[in-house]
């Protein structure tokens, strides 16, 4: 009875908030707090030389999707923006699919090594991931440029006479993102494959399933949460990619990230940039929520 009315001392009840305060303060100032200001800025008027004028306007949001024709003032879709949205989405999707095609067998290979070797193979996957993204993008650039190793090699072998223009194309961006984000696909798939019970595979073989059917009907469905996680982990940074399209797309092949940057540089339209940033954030958050739901649903069935 005494226990029920016993209240713990103040320090014990609130100590976690004291402990949390430094981290939360830093994150508030330099991570999630400023996001609200972005939202506010997206409803302001653009200043002539960058910055904003503090008066309410929905122009930025309007301009995200539509534009007024310069000559006859008619309304139309913002084709340039939509093209960039589409390229971002398409490149991110293709990157994700190709990463899955390469990443799943790689994760499978690692998960089927003897337990002692697995961490070492995973380290081999993770080392490039923890090295500078810019450097890895630069490494790809050197590989595929006109004077790069791939073209030099092909020309030396006589396969081609002229270098193939690979740099500054969508293909280059896709290859770059694939290279940079592949470990993010391998990691969660490996995690679910490592937990995977190969007795299920034996059971399927025992019940007359051949190799392909074992893969399609048992291994892939059971490891689906890992596959979804990996796909989302690749898709999200690919949608928001900035460095890779800038270096490998050469400024002409823009993705959403570059379009946003443009508004704060030459474009001098901060509200539009802010609105575009919010659009990107919404897309990313929506796909994340979708993932958590999907993974949760799957996970519940596994017990």
């Amino acid at each position: 009875m005494a226990d029920a009315t016993y209240t713990r001392p103040f320090s014990e009840r609130y100590s976690h908030w004291i402990l949390l305060s430094p981290a939360l303060l830093i994150l508030f100032v330099a991570a999630f707090g400023p996001l609200f200001i972005v939202l506010i800025y997206s409803f302001l008027t653009a200043g002539d030389y960058g910055g904003v004028v503090w008066s309410f306007s929905t122009d930025a949001w309007f301009n995200v999707f539509a534009e007024r024709d310069m000559f006859d003032d008619t309304l139309g879709f913002a084709d340039a923006h939509l093209a960039i949205f589409w390229r971002s989405f398409r490149l991110a999707a293709v990157t994700t699919v190709v990463a899955l095609i390469f990443g799943f067998p790689t994760a499978y290979f690692i998960a089927t090594r003897p337990p002692k070797q697995r961490n070492l193979w995973m380290l081999l996957i993770m080392v490039p991931f923890w090295t500078n993204l810019l450097i890895r993008t630069f490494a790809i650039m050197e590989l595929i440029r006109n004077e790069g190793v791939v073209n030099s090699l092909l020309m030396a072998m006589g396969v081609i006479n002229e270098p193939i223009q690979m740099l500054y194309t969508d293909f280059a961006i896709m290859i770059g993102m694939l290279y940079v984000y592949l470990p993010l696909m391998v990691l969660p798939i490996y995690a679910s494959l490592e937990r995977f019970d190969f007795a299920l595979v034996e059971a399927a073989y025992d019940l007359y399933a051949n190799r392909l059917r074992v893969l399609w009907r048992v291994i892939l469905p059971v490891t689906k949460p890992g596959i979804i996680a990996g796909s989302i982990l690749v898709m999200i940074p690919a949608l928001g990619a900035y460095v890779t399209p800038r270096v490998l797309g050469g400024g002409k092949r823009m993705m959403l990230g570059n379009l946003i940057e443009l508004q704060f540089g030459q474009g001098r339209n901060w509200p539009l940039g802010a609105a575009l940033a919010i659009v990107l954030l919404i897309i990313v958050t929506a796909s994340m929520i979708y993932y958590v739901r999907a993974a949760g649903k799957e996970g519940a069935g596994h017990g």
Binding site: L20, F32, P34, G240, Y242, I260, A274, V284, T285
Partner: peptide
């Protein structure tokens, strides 16, 4: 909520955080 806040930099695209900081620090 605390957990989400701590992990937030992992979930928000870097370019969005970068833009937010640009605006906020300019202010």
């Amino acid at each position: 909520v605390v957990f989400a806040i701590i992990n937030q930099p992992l979930m928000v695209p870097e370019i969005v955080t970068a833009v937010a900081l640009l605006i906020f620090f300019a202010l």
